[in-house]
């Protein structure tokens, strides 16, 4: 038996301790990822017949498919719109809620409602708001001379905006919470010092508040970006015509003639794009 140093022994013992977790993580996360990559090189059969190897055929098919590029563009636009929208709204609300005013506690509690209500219930409420003729939004817009018969939700041209607004509404409380908790920990000495130097409110905001919030905003933007890039439930339940990539994948994989190999190839492409984007983002913006 070879003699092991104490350090080696410790290392081995450590590995034994983490091994169960590592195996579970590998099974739960890595296996689906690699199985997906594997599938993307096959023509997946839905019957008992074995899958047929087609090499890069699936990828070729996608990259020359104009509807793929269209939904790719829509997904990027959706991600940017919702991330920027929810951060701006969340920042504004966090600044408001950072002031003292009577009833602040109850307003703060109400602000969390969009984030905690069950998705399907709130989707129906929003569909009602956008309902043609009877919906409150349509009635409101009719005062300004708009045709109340417009169906925003089921019109492919507008569905994107409906879904974006809904997504911003649902997710800004998350941003607001993160930003507010950071805002509360900013030392008020900075503001007092700035006031003595004669800084205006705007200058205080730009030179103290924003730099203090920088890393929180950047992290929240990263999280929201990842979530919204892959967002399926909120988009699909709200409108089936929004046509973002996750919905495109779903339609390829499960509706009509299922082409699961193609769907797997799209998912793989997204995975690669996302990994590289996150890598760049973390290096440049979060400065790790």
């Amino acid at each position: 038996m070879a003699v092991m140093s104490l350090r080696e022994k410790d290392a081995r013992f450590g590995w034994k301790l983490v091994l169960p977790t590592v195996i579970i993580i590998a099974l739960l996360i890595l296996y689906p990822v690699f199985y997906n990559i594997y599938l993307s090189f096959f023509e997946v059969s839905i019957s008992d017949a074995p899958n047929k190897f087609v090499g890069l055929q699936n990828y070729k098919e996608i990259l020359t498919d104009s509807s793929f590029w269209k939904s790719f563009g829509i997904t990027l636009l959706f991600t940017f719109t919702t991330v920027i929208g929810s951060i701006l709204l969340g920042l504004g609300v966090a600044l408001l809620m950072n002031r003292e005013f009577p009833g602040r506690g109850i307003v703060r509690a109400l602000l969390l409602l969009p984030y905690v209500t069950p998705l399907i219930a709130i989707v129906f409420a929003w569909k009602y708001i956008f309902l043609p003729i009877d919906g409150p939004l349509m009635k409101f817009l009719a005062y300004f001379g708009m045709d109340p018969g417009n169906d925003f939700v089921n019109n492919p041209n507008n569905a994107f905006w409906v879904v974006s607004i809904f997504n911003i509404w649902r997710n800004f409380p998350f941003v607001y919470l993160m930003l507010l908790s950071r805002l509360q920990s900013i030392n008020s000495d900075y503001y007092e010092a700035a006031e003595i130097d004669g800084a205006s409110n705007w200058q205080k905001f730009v030179h103290i508040t924003l730099p203090e919030l920088y890393f929180v905003i950047a992290s929240v933007a990263l999280l929201r970006g990842i979530w919204n890039f892959y967002k399926f439930d909120e988009v699909y339940l709200m409108s089936k015509f929004a046509n973002t990539l996750p919905i495109y994948i779903y339609e390829k994989a499960f509706t009509g003639v299922p082409e699961q190999g193609v769907a797997a190839a799209i998912a793989t492409i997204l995975f690669v794009i996302m990994i590289s984007l996150i890598g760049i983002y973390v290096k440049k913006v979060l400065k790790w």
Binding site: V93, L96, R99, F101, V107, L110, L111, L113, P114, T117, A121, I122, F124, A125, W126, Y128, I129, P136, W169
Partner: peptide, 23 residues
């Protein structure tokens, strides 16, 4: 202006929820 903002915010946030409860 401040209170108008707060009111608008509260309506924006709670309207769909209030409708759900109402129905």
């Amino acid at each position: 202006g401040f209170w108008t903002l707060i009111a608008a915010l509260v309506i924006f946030v709670t309207y769909p929820f209030a409708w759900m409860v109402s129905v």
